[in-house]
């Protein structure tokens, strides 16, 4: 079955998106063809607007539509702490806790030699530059708990400790509010290793 050329092209373009296969793309395309033209224009405009106006914050590297993101520009934030994360989505996750009042630094990746990503390919140089000002006392490394995230944390610890800042890593273990008996063996094993004196 062949579609009219504009439909085929739309389906083809939609499959470029993550998580969208040919079938989903087809469904989305036909849905759009049934929408009001103004609605479709709104979607198209939002996509282009977002792409054009969103940039990385000059300071932390998080995505923003300003030169400096709201967190970095907020005088109420604690300036002695920087939480280092891999991706902008991780900042959003941390912010949802409403607990952390410090600053962020987005690396946009983790060290992974197999993918050709070394320390120069992620925003480590920018992080070191921020620390030169001397106001930061603690760097909290919140990279993912996989081997790449761990390697990045170890690299940062070796790099930053000589600068006189404390380098800490998020704890891993049992989810809060869960029953012990329902925790899987791996998580429980990790939590056991990370036990603390009460």
């Amino acid at each position: 079955m062949t579609y009219a050329r504009p439909i085929a092209r739309l389906i083809d373009q939609l499959t470029r998106l993550p998580g969208v296969g040919p079938k989903t793309a087809q469904r989305l395309a036909f849905h759009m063809l049934g929408m009001e033209q103004s609605e479709v224009e709104q979607i198209a405009k939002s996509m282009v607007d977002a792409r054009v106006s969103v940039r990385r914050c000059d300071v932390c590297g998080d995505l923003t539509d300003q030169r400096i993101c709201p967190v970095c520009g907020d005088p109420g934030r604690e300036r002695s702490m920087i939480c280092v994360v891999e991706r902008p989505q991780d900042v959003a996750a941390m912010e949802r806790t409403r607990q952390y009042r410090g600053l962020y630094h987005v690396l946009h990746g983790a060290i992974a030699p197999l993918d050709g990503i070394g320390p120069e390919q992620i925003r480590i140089r920018e992080l070191v530059a921020r620390l030169q000002e001397g106001t930061v006392r603690e760097v909290i490394v919140a990279t993912n708990p996989d081997v790449e995230g761990d390697a990045t944390a170890l690299f940062l610890a070796d790099l930053l400790r000589p600068l006189g800042v404390a380098v800490t890593r998020l704890a891993r273990g049992l989810p809060v509010g869960g029953d012990l008996e329902y925790a899987d063996e791996v998580t429980l094993g990790k939590a056991f290793e990370g036990r603390r004196e009460v």
């Binding site: 992974a112 030699p113 197999l114 996989d146 081997v147 390697a151 063996e185 791996v186 094993g189």
Partner: peptide
């Protein structure tokens, strides 16, 4: 139970280091 995951992590870290 966690040994297979441990071996997998070890294998991944080893592959990264060998590449370097």
């Amino acid at each position: 139970p966690r040994y297979r995951g441990l071996l997998r992590r070890y294998g991944t870290a080893l592959a990264h280091r060998n590449r370097l």
